[in-house]
């Protein structure tokens, strides 16, 4: 199995969870165990678009209970017996191997997955350009031996790309410092935000310079934020920026200014 595998480096590993919940796209080769005509094949393939039931395969990392997964798109790209080339656009956690097996069952002839290539993981698409392991090792050589880090620097994208598919909010320096310390985001610190943010959405919070501060859950719609001057907007879930990047803006309690005093 080949294809898109985003690798998060350093603190960016904290963002992987938000990527795993996003949709995936595959190109797969299905091998039919008997001949069927194209019409029947198309008809059956269409049956698998939408919400489907799947029992995870024996060799899987999750509990084997029947669960519902959504297939957003299933396209017959090419059919040359016994091989069928399929493009699959599906919810996270959909097993392509299982899907193909089930299509074979409904067709009545049986089928299995011959090859699979992932063409998209959330925002990471094959068409945006992928790095091969060979390239990475060559660029690392250039950096370590030739002291030229340019290719490697071009290859590693800022970790912010891991949340590029989420709705976004930009906040001021003072709010960034507070959120970095674990505070929730309130309305007064907000500078700019995406339209159509809904209560309950997972949103990414950025500084005015574009650095990712944290990821949280919206407690207001965009419209509400526009109409109010105060209140809790985003509950902080995962802080990314380091605490020391922006200076704290809140005033320390006077008695603590010079450290606690003992009398």
């Amino acid at each position: 199995m080949t294809g898109v595998l985003p690798i998060a480096l350093g603190d960016a590993v904290k963002l992987i969870g938000f990527l795993m919940q996003s949709s995936k796209e595959y190109v797969a080769v299905m091998q039919l165990h008997g001949s069927v005509d194209v019409g029947a094949l198309r008809e059956v393939i269409d049956l698998f678009v939408g919400k489907i039931y799947q029992k995870p395969p024996v060799r899987s990392s999750v509990k084997r209970v029947l669960r519902v997964r959504e297939v957003f798109g299933l396209e017959l790209v090419e059919y040359e017996h016994p091989y069928v080339l399929l493009r699959i656009d599906c919810e996270h956690g959909t097993y392509a191997r299982k899907l193909i097996h089930d299509i074979g069952d409904v067709l009545g002839v049986g089928a299995h997955m011959r090859e699979l290539r992932r063409t998209r993981v959330g925002p990471f698409k094959e068409s945006s350009g992928l790095v091969r392991m060979h390239d990475l090792s060559e660029y690392t050589y250039l950096w370590r031996v030739e002291r030229d880090p340019r290719m490697l620097m071009k290859t590693i994208m800022p970790g912010e790309y891991l949340v590029s598919h989420l709705p976004k909010v930009i906040i001021n320096d003072a709010a960034a410092s507070a959120v970095a310390h674990g505070a929730d985001l309130t309305v007064p610190g907000v500078s700019t935000l995406h339209e159509r943010i809904r209560k309950g959405d997972v949103v990414a919070i950025f500084t005015l310079k574009g650095e990712l501060v944290a990821v949280g859950v919206a407690q207001m719609h965009t419209e509400e934020v526009l109409q109010t001057r105060k209140g809790l907007f985003i509950k902080t879930k995962r802080v990314i920026i380091d605490r020391g990047v922006y200076p704290p803006s809140w005033r320390k309690h006077p008695s603590l200014k010079n450290g606690p005093s003992y009398q």
């Binding site: 199995m1 590693i156 790309y161």
Partner: peptide, 30 residues
């Protein structure tokens, strides 16, 4: 709002070291 230029750094100006502490590679898995 204005941002204080003495603090923080635009993500696209990160050094290699900083990228390796908060970065991502879109790899083609063999």
């Amino acid at each position: 709002f204005t941002t204080n230029e003495n603090y923080g750094k635009p993500p696209e100006q990160r050094s290699l070291d900083e990228l390796m502490r908060l970065g991502v590679i879109s790899l083609d898995k063999p």
